[in-house]
Design a protein around this nucleic acid. Structure first.
Lengths: 219, 219, 219, 219
DNA sequence: TATGAATGAGGGTTCATTCAT
DNA sequence: TATGAATGAACCCTCATTCAT
């Protein structure tokens, strides 16, 4: 089950092209990335639907139409943002899952990795968290659903391994537990501010302490 | 601290209107409620912004313009949905908070009450969960921010009481804990389906078990 | 030219009907008149286009739809208001024109009669003044254009008679003079308030003094 | 008749906007002016309320939505039209009022100036004439009421100066006289056609002759 | 690369009007 | 006579997108 050896067909970065035919894909990737960053910020702040292309352009100091030199559409910006985030996320997850750790250590590593990703891609995570459901229904964003499936599989497997190894309690509904864990981790993106008091690792530690040992005092 | 004898600043009924017989305010509450239910469902499914008034009307078997006989605007529908939900939520919370329970029992009761509310008002909760942040900035929806403040106060007080009484662990960041607890409870609305396998009370029990005692096996 | 013994085809008041077929025309003329008065007031205040049927109904203490028991349409209310006003106006004018007065006396009588009409039908006059131009283009309101033609003919004739009789100055452009006189009289409706300091006759006197003798001191 | 390099408190150009390059404010004033001219024409012809944005766009050979690239709203077009007209009007009036003329010459100059303005801004004057009353009630168009107040003050002062100097008759109600003079001048906009038989100066002369000396033959 | 101007589809809303009760 | 509820057309406006320059 473990080896996730690829992010598969995700073609975010095209190889440098010789022909100048479609400049949008290759030209000045620096500016592209900058614009995507701005867009992600605004999407996260206002919501994808409520964000107008013009607002993004305002933040970038250009006119709305000018964005279309860099991107095909508003939706393609969104796609690129989410793909970039998921690519990185999975490269982290895959490393963890392939490391051959025990269930408890795997869980700890996955959670820590998640908080690190929130730290790095806060905006993207917030967008993902808010729009995931609606988007996943569209063919263009099928990769979101696919990612979620893989995500669920990895988590359930880890939890079940832990129950089998008597590291996790057996009396909990694994599916429910998965949902709780999953959600709590990601909603953090809605209030987390990078550069705040807590580092992602510290938040992960607190969170793990709570999830693993509970908040009640042991008798 | 205890006696919350009213919902105070969160008024359900709009202030009396100038014109004598504005039907929108009180008359035919049956149809109104029905339409609000439909609207809430669609808002929850598609997101508020992405929902067109026409779509709501379609679901109600009428034309878009006809909705305006019952409501002032799309936004006023949203407001009424959220107010209705929060009113009921707080009437439940207040009962709990006034009951004079110990911190652990209070926490259990609050969580159970929350899941019950998700069961009753799933759509409203999902909307709230998704739009809360953007809406709270608008003056019209200031009551959302106000509610959140009260909510936070109640939870923090309970947690702190528990720490003082040595019922809850002292080594956890109370604020962080609050956020985790709060979020996990409410995101449940995004996947919960009324009439499914788990009753709200059962979900609450599982959830509380996890939060209080952790998912790790005790050594 | 003189005998204007009728307003001809103007069928405002149908003869009492035996059949109950179309109640709108005959039933309860008192209520009709009352409603027309209200409508005229609102039309005058807000402008015909800007006035909603609902606003009229509000003022009448009923619902918008209920007006349609009494009238065919908003436009038919307007028509009836204007017809009623013009009918009365012409019955006054005709009396003057048939009286065989000299040109100066005719002019004085016409002006006085006009101010009296403003006093009685202020709202209708204001509506007429404001909407005349646009309405006259519609077939339904052709009677407005027709009335204006008769009006102009009567005035020009009077002015020319006066010039011929050396009662009015010959060095003025009769057509321009007509326009000035006509307009000044009717715009008074826009500021005239019945029951104010000046009676219509007093205003007429002042106005005539100005028009006939000028405002400059004679040397 | 000295040089007036400002219109004082009636600002033509909107205050500087927050965003850097809002095109609506200043850029491409040529097209803006053209569109405003078209809009004014249509407003004058059909009435502001009865004019649809689409009709304006039709006349301009574009789609309705395209107008919003240049203007914020239909209302803002109206405002700009009226402001432009009043600005120019007052620059003319101020020149007259500061010239230190006698009361009769002042009156003559004001009237002549008014007819010139009608010649230049016929559409705007017609709109002003028809919509002034309703608009002045709105805060956005408070400048209309303000202008009217200044207008009245200037005229009353001139008339009273004339009476004091025994140039104008003392037996006339000054307020009534003002109204008559004011209205007759401006209603001319409803029938005046630029390029017609009469130049504005000629119309002014005829009008002044009538107002000052009356239409009756002197005995 | 970016601008300025426009398109075209749709979205929320208004309003005169209808009609069963 | 009047109400309550709905219709349907039209309206103002927004916005992603296009394209010549």
């Amino acid at each position: 089950m473990s080896p996730y050896d690829h992010n598969g067909p995700v073609p975010t970065k095209k190889p440098p092209q010789v022909t100048v035919a479609k400049p949008a894909a290759s030209a000045a990737p620096a500016r592209r990335r900058e614009l995507l960053g701005i867009a992600a910020e605004v999407f996260a702040e206002q919501g994808y639907n409520a964000t107008t292309v013009r607002r993004i352009a305002d933040h970038a100091g250009m006119l709305a139409g000018s964005l279309y030199y860099h991107f095909d559409s508003k939706e393609s910006m969104l796609e690129e943002i989410l793909r970039g985030f998921l690519d990185e996320l999975w490269s982290g997850y895959d490393a963890v899952l392939e490391a051959g750790l025990g269930p408890r250590e795997t869980l700890e590593a996955l959670v820590t990795e998640s908080f690190r990703e929130i730290d790095r891609h806060r905006a993207a995570v917030a967008i993902y968290q808010k729009e995931n459901r609606q988007l996943a229904a569209q063919e263009r964003f099928a990769f979101l659903a696919e990612s979620q499936r893989r995500f669920e599989k990895a988590w359930l497997a880890t939890l079940e391994r832990g129950v089998a190894a008597e590291v996790f309690r057996a009396d909990l509904d694994v599916r429910l537990t998965y949902r709780f864990v999953r959600d709590t981790v990601w909603v953090a993106a809605s209030w987390y501010r990078p550069g705040g008091r807590h580092s992602p690792e510290e938040i992960a530690r607190q969170y793990l302490s709570m999830v693993l040992d509970g908040i009640a005092v042991r008798e």
